[in-house]
């Protein structure tokens, strides 16, 4: 199939007024000069409004007594397509399973949100948060304590006001 090229129709010679075009352009730029349309978000001072479905930094939900809600079922490391979750589970005296090691490598994570989707006890979440810059690479593997400390709002996997994403 031939590439279709759009040919701009030029006005015939002697029929185009450059003077008028120039003045038109000058008036257009003048209107913008005196009243610019604001499109820039001045980021550190102004914060962007995140979508309820924004998937950012992870967060581990905790029980009222401070224990993680995670039951170390192993679904999230299994489903994780980036293989960024390391989980070593353990069992206490009452037979409750809990994570001994729970680490998420934020560098490897692709923020797909599958860990949150698959979690049977709604423990691990991705959150509405993106400011996770650090001074060193070693600070990007979040351990359990760090995940439990996060307090940003968690992601809603669908927008409650628009559940079918219409």
């Amino acid at each position: 199939m031939a590439i279709s090229v759009k040919v701009m129709r030029r006005p015939e010679a002697g029929r185009m007024s450059y003077m008028r075009a120039t003045l038109k352009g000058m008036s257009l730029t003048f209107r913008h000069m005196v009243r610019p349309t604001k499109v820039t978000l001045e980021y550190p001072e102004e914060q962007p409004e995140l979508s309820p479905r924004w998937r950012g930094t992870h967060r581990m939900e905790v029980h009222a007594d401070g224990r993680p809600k995670c039951v170390a079922c192993g679904l999230c490391p299994t489903v994780c397509p980036a293989n960024c979750i390391r989980l070593v589970g353990g069992e206490d005296d009452q037979g409750n399973r809990y994570p001994i090691v729970y680490e998420i490598d934020e560098f490897r994570c692709i923020f797909c949100g599958m860990c949150q989707e698959v979690c049977p006890v709604e423990a691990i979440h991705v959150g509405q948060h993106f400011e996770n810059a650090e001074y060193g690479r070693d600070r990007f593997v979040y351990d359990l304590d760090r995940l439990m400390e996060q307090d940003h709002p968690v992601t809603q996997l669908w927008d409650p006001s628009d559940p079918r994403s219409e």
């Binding site: 759009k6 040919v7 129709r9 030029r10 010679a13 029929r15 450059y18 008028r20």
Partner: peptide, 28 residues
């Protein structure tokens, strides 16, 4: 004004090149 003195590229093309060119149909 009006292409008499300073002209755009299209004018140059029409005055210089006489070779038949693919003509654009009305749909462009």
């Amino acid at each position: 004004d009006r292409d008499r003195v300073i002209s755009g590229a299209h004018r140059k093309r029409t005055t210089r090149a006489r070779a038949p060119r693919a003509v654009a149909d009305p749909a462009g």
